[in-house]
Design a protein around this nucleic acid. Structure first.
Lengths: 203, 203
DNA sequence: TATATTATGATACCTTAGTCTCGTATTTAG
DNA sequence: CTAAATACGAGACTAAGGTATCATAATATA
């Protein structure tokens, strides 16, 4: 009476469905507190009250677990759905930087982990990189539709330069503040706007 | 008769000055052959015919050793000393990409290593990042002096966007080819050139 | 009830980066 | 020649990520 998909139910002891969330919560809390490298798999498992193998049955590596923990807590991005492209870009970037103040160190370690783990790189791209790239690409494409942005703008490269510039700063330990967001947004918009020399008029 | 600086010579057995170069050569060769993570410190030391401790007496970590090995072999950059900024940028980038075809995987691992080792991050910035940033900044500043580039161009941010875009691609496993170099160079130049809509005239 | 199947925690195990120690070799200073 | 100082190779040691195994628990099916 409680299960309707009994036919698809496999035999054997079922997984404890409280274990996954406990591990995610433990991972996020411990990594925020002690840093990615300051937390071992054993610490996370112990904090969640499970064995290590139970963790590895759910995620194939520390990086995958921590990615899942941070994606889960990140919530949906706060994105303006219309307005001038430059304003929307700036709003997006300021929000990203605010999240990175807390999550930035862990994100740096996840990017690092992806450099010698092709499977994890795929996960990281799919879960983190591509959704954010798509937000920015959409802003650019809307700008083209609006007539704000050149029809032949290289959207893909603009996205790479936009995200790349702050990755560069993030990975090199630079400060990601509102002034940086302002300057980066302006640089990119100057490149692809139809009226690149009228910034002053818009004050 | 052979030493003139005997007064500054410290007592004790002197270091074998053939060991350093042997370790650098072993590190570079093995990392190119097997990849950064496919090579252990033990393998490098054995290949060079020394003990591990002898290696750690010269470099504080695997990352520092490999950085030194790749910087040593990199030679001086092939940089055009004059000409139009766009041409010089493109020439620089094509050269960088050519080097990265061989060294790219190791560089990715070095960037990764820097994410939880602040001392190594300093070394990597000083040895790798800053010299390359300075080359590009010089091209931009020359362009300002020439009148090709806007006097108020944000050179620092343009450098971050320029390098950041290809770091973004490098770290995400994207292809770094001549077409990418062309498109990136054009995007950045459009942003800071005085005459941003004349690309077609220059063929 | 009996059997096959899967999950669980515990623990042993492997490899690696990096540290520490030991016995020995090579140098300077006296 | 002796003592102090430093380098050397070797190997023990620690901590970590990840794998494998084991006894046991919980489930489906028959």
């Amino acid at each position: 009476m409680t299960k309707m998909t009994t036919s698809t139910r496999s035999p054997g002891r079922p997984r404890d469905n409280k274990v996954g969330p406990s591990l995610l919560a433990a991972a996020r809390q411990l990594v925020l507190q002690h840093g990615y490298c300051g937390v071992s798999i054993q610490m996370i498992a112990t904090e969640a009250g499970v064995g290590r193998q139970t963790l590895y049955r759910r995620w194939p590596s520390k990086a995958e677990l921590v990615l899942a923990a941070f994606l889960e807590s990140a919530g949906d991005a706060d994105v303006l759905s219309d307005g001038r492209a430059e304003k929307r870009l700036l709003h997006f970037l300021v929000n990203v930087f605010r999240n990175l103040q807390q999550d930035g160190p862990a994100i740096r370690n996840l990017i690092a982990s992806a450099q010698d783990d092709p499977e994890f790189l795929k996960s990281f791209r799919a879960g983190f990189v591509e959704p954010r790239a798509e937000i920015v690409a959409t802003i650019f494409r809307d700008g083209i539709a609006n007539g704000e942005i050149l029809e032949d703008a290289d959207v893909e490269m603009a996205v790479a330069a936009f995200h790349g510039a702050f990755w560069y700063h993030l990975l090199l330990g630079g400060k990601l503040d509102a002034e940086f967001a302002q300057r980066l947004t302006r640089l990119i918009m100057k490149s692809i706007s139809k009226e690149p020399r009228e910034e002053e008029l818009l004050k």
